[in-house]
Design a protein around this nucleic acid. Structure first.
Length: 248
DNA sequence: AACGATTCCAACCGCCGCGGA
DNA sequence: TTCCGCGGCGGTTGGAATCGT
């Protein structure tokens, strides 16, 4: 039994897309926009399954895609976000304009994994690979009360003292989203002068009466950075306030 | 030049969550 | 409340391109 296939497999092409198929897909989406992927192939005159069309469009044909090598900055952002989000490639891609989840996933598997391993960092846990014969070292992006400087807080903290090691050894980087502490959030906005958003806005409820940050349309305050899309989790600016995340 | 090994990435597969009936 | 269809996601694969011998 099981789920019915997403399309009639007997009459669909597979494998690499031809120039003609690309042109048809582009022309159709330009004329009608992205929409019902299931019916798109037939409407566009393509012998492809809807999923295949969607993938081709999103990963290759979309006009806003940035092609070419990843920059050092992008590398850093990917590593940082991966340490926080794990293999949530679509979330990571959402923070890198012009990059797709598939592209980032491939890049991670082919480049970054190797790069981290060569630096002695486990790409899965983002911890230093422990050599049983040497003292354990832990790398953590968790907020560190001993490091108050904002810039320093964004850098990984390498701990190798036995006491700190004990404390952080079982740190689980699985994250849980929780509302920011009102006072802390307010203070953060006031002190840091950056574009933080309240929990309502971070969830996309920018019209909510609960909006406290002023980014909502009910509280129109000039916001240069957030004019395009909202800053979910504060990751757009690559500044993730650990106070809004609870580390298990 | 030829061949095998390795790397890279586009595309596929199957599962999951959401929303509508 | 349950079922079903759909879109989206992450893991995996196949084959082209590149490299090394």
């Amino acid at each position: 039994m099981g789920r019915s296939p997403c399309c009639e497999k007997a009459h669909t092409n597979k494998g690499a897309w031809t120039k003609e198929e690309d042109d048809r897909l582009i022309a159709y989406i330009k004329a009608h926009g992205e929409g019902c992927w299931r019916s798109l192939p037939r409407a566009a005159g393509l012998l492809r399954c809807g999923k295949s069309c969607r993938l081709r469009w999103i990963n290759y044909l979309r006009p806003d895609l940035k092609r070419g090598n990843f920059t050092e900055d992008e590398d850093e952002v990917i590593i940082k976000l991966h340490s926080l989000l794990g293999n949530r490639w679509s979330l990571i891609a959402g923070r890198l304009p012009g990059r797709t989840d598939n592209e980032i996933k491939n890049y991670w598997n082919t480049h970054i994994k190797r790069k981290l391993l060569s630096q002695g960092i486990d790409p899965t846990t983002h911890r230093a690979i422990v050599d049983p014969s040497s003292p354990a070292t832990t790398i953590s992006f968790a907020s560190n009360s001993a490091v108050e400087d904002q810039e320093d807080r964004k850098k990984p903290v390498i701990n190798s003292s036995p006491t700190e090691k004990q404390h952080l050894l079982d740190l689980n980087l699985d994250l849980k989203i929780s509302p920011p502490y009102p006072v802390a959030a307010g203070a953060a906005m006031k002190n840091e002068g950056r574009n933080s958003v309240c929990f309502s806005c971070s969830l996309g409820f920018e019209n909510s009466k609960d909006c406290r940050c002023g980014n909502g349309k009910n509280n129109i305050i000039a916001s240069s950075d957030n004019s395009k899309g909202f800053d979910f989790l504060g990751l757009k600016s690559c500044v993730l306030d650990c106070r809004t995340l609870e580390i298990k």
